[in-house]
Amino acid sequence: MDTNRLSDTLAKALNQQMTNEAHNAQIYLAYAAWASSKGYDGIANFMFRHSSEERNHMMKFLEYILKRGATVTVAEIPHPGPNPSNVNDCFEKVFQSEVENTKSIYDIVNLSLEEKDWATWNFMQWFVKEQTEEETMALDLLSKIKIAGGAAAKDDALYALDNDMGKTPDDATLAQDTSVQNP
């Protein structure tokens, strides 16, 4: 008896997203190693934590595919690309990676809507919110490096930024979670 409740198209898209999440984990891991090698231990710690978070996202997709009775396809993870040239470049690359991931998430949401696969649509809503947090976090990083001087940031500003990054929480405050009392 066939217990698969995912279309071939959705199963393929979910498997691809699982690989995307693994790729994002590798990107954060590579940037963490790069930051650590440059002496930016606070930035490295932040990036290591986000690498772990991306691996957790990968596992959510893997479990969902299995629980829907479809086949998980573990594919090769693309190379994370070249190391950043500086902290500003690192944060720009993080932002770009998150934007690309958001587009992929939205494609799956649209596909599940078209197919009227409400279980997958519902599952993906967690990722829609998560990507809003991830993009907000990446924009916050870009704002911090801009204040520090961007690509031309001086060592004292980068030292302060690195210290701040070691204490930066993993979650960003979203617009929908703010109020007049809690801006």
Rank of each mutant, 00 (worst) to 15 (best):
L113H: 00
L113Y: 03
L113N: 09
E114L: 08
E115I: 02
E115A: 07
E115Q: 10
D117A: 09
W118L: 09
W118G: 02
A119H: 08
A119T: 11
T120Y: 03
T120W: 03
W121N: 14
W121M: 11
N122K: 13
N122W: 04
N122M: 09
F123T: 04
M124N: 06
Q125Y: 09
Q125M: 11
W126Q: 03
W126S: 06
F127P: 10
F127R: 02
V128I: 14
K129Y: 00
E133Q: 08
E133L: 02
E133T: 09
E134Y: 10
E134D: 14
E134C: 12
M137Q: 13
A138R: 00
D140E: 12
L141E: 00
S143L: 07
K144M: 15
K144S: 13
I145M: 05
K146F: 14
K146D: 14
I147Q: 13
I147R: 14
A148I: 02
A148V: 03
A148W: 01
G149W: 05
A151E: 12
A152W: 09
A153K: 02
A153F: 02
A153E: 01
A153S: 12
A153G: 04
K154W: 00
D155S: 13
L158S: 06
L158K: 06
L158F: 06
Y159C: 06
A160V: 12
N163C: 10
N163M: 10
D164E: 15
D164R: 14
